[in-house]
Design a protein around this nucleic acid. Structure first.
Lengths: 228, 228
DNA sequence: CCCAACTCTTGACAGTCGTCACGACCTATC
DNA sequence: GATAGGTCGTGACGACTGTCAAGAGTTGGG
């Protein structure tokens, strides 16, 4: 069984106005349709992300997504050709808002010590507020180990998250007047592993999972800089 | 919908001789049956682990497991009451043989430098030889974030793996005459994150994923010890 | 040698899944 | 205001799932 994966533009619906559409119609009307179409897709993605975060990738059916949204299950297949197309669109949609998570920490911290503290706080707060979202991300990344169709997205998001960590660490090094002891490509998986473990333990009801995460971050970050 | 989870002994089959059986039968025959029952369960687990490693937790059906084994799909339900019972039994079965993975590295390395080299080699070899097994483990751990029934097993296996890493690192510190700079509870998630990232990249066809893993391990381990 | 218990296979049931065709509704254009 | 096309809900199909009942096949004890 061979699977042919075709890349589709994010803005174009699956079957809606996907075909030839600018034949006679005015360009303005087409643009109006396109924007409305994207709007619908984003509405559905927003709703689907909640369900996906609750149930996980495998247990979430298209019907369940539709049921937890103001739309019907036929609506889903009108705007998305496939289940995987919906999923990847949802995760890309989530990615956009996730990247800016630590930007204020980077821009507002005046000293290295302050940056560490605020970074650790933000780590904890992220789990407290968006634990379902993050387990969904880990779910997708793990499924990418099995399904080749998910790998480009998983690797791309990983790269984006690594860039996010890079901005934090490089600003931290700059504030402290030192340089990074390990490349970001090493530091990111390390921090990610610590974060993932804390997420699992937090979801499992381990009481001090988040306080441990905070302490770990505070002791770990200084060790990522070169000894003076 | 409430789900009642009942813990079952590993040695007892689901419905086979699980009921009252030692009424008139000789105890020796009962023991013989028990051992044969466990043998059957292990045979099925061995076969199921291959399928699970190929398809992943969600995509693997009981029929698929049976089809890739010399047994029928009814056989599965004769020895295992539930799908989750089969899965957890399989993973426990795998856990037993995984723990001893780095024991020779610990016992045979004469110097700290040799231990680092052999540990890094073993990391790479593990991915090369048992990538499907490890993505299955990551799959199960991620599913535990959603399904509470899997959490005890996931946390238990994580603890076992952490103990394994602890034996390596403590021996490494001993050989080098230094002490660990970070507790093992921090070092394990770090190394696990690096390993997980390398596994994903290796499965995704990134060419230098394993050589990068090896280099990372060699530079990371010395940084886990206190400065002299 | 027979009978009973154990072992395992076959077949089927109820439910859910992704997918799609059909038709109703709405909107805008002539 | 008729009409064509975009938009979306309803219903159904086929495939697949976990689960279980019923009955063959096998084994061992009397």
């Amino acid at each position: 069984m061979t699977v042919v994966t075709t890349y589709r533009q994010d803005a174009l619906p699956a079957r809606g106005n996907a075909g030839r559409m600018g034949t006679v119609t005015a360009a303005s009307a087409t643009r109006g349709r396109e924007s409305k179409s994207r709007e619908r897709r984003d509405q559905l993605a927003e709703s689907a992300l909640v369900t996906l975060g609750q149930l996980g990738y495998a247990r979430t059916s298209l019907r369940e997504i539709a049921q937890n949204s103001p739309f019907s299950h036929g609506f889903v297949h009108y705007y998305f050709a496939d289940k995987t197309e919906l999923i990847t669109y949802c995760v890309r949609h989530y990615k956009r808002q996730c990247v800016t998570r630590y930007d204020t920490v980077v821009s507002e911290s005046a000293t290295a010590a302050e940056l560490v503290e605020r970074f650790a706080d933000e780590l904890v707060e992220t789990i407290e507020q968006e634990a379902p979202m993050h387990r969904l991300w880990y779910d997708l990344r793990t499924q990418a180990m099995f399904d080749p169709a998910l790998r480009p997205d998983a690797l791309a998001i990983d790269a984006t998250l690594q860039d996010m960590v890079a901005r934090v660490l490089e600003r931290y090094a700059e504030l402290d007047g030192r340089s990074l002891a390990v490349p970001v490509a090493v530091a990111y998986p390390m921090l990610d592993g610590v974060f993932e473990q804390a997420l699992l333990r937090h979801l499992s009801g381990v009481p001090d999972a988040l306080t441990t995460l905070r302490a770990t971050a505070c002791t770990l970050l200084p060790r990522l800089l070169r000894v003076r």
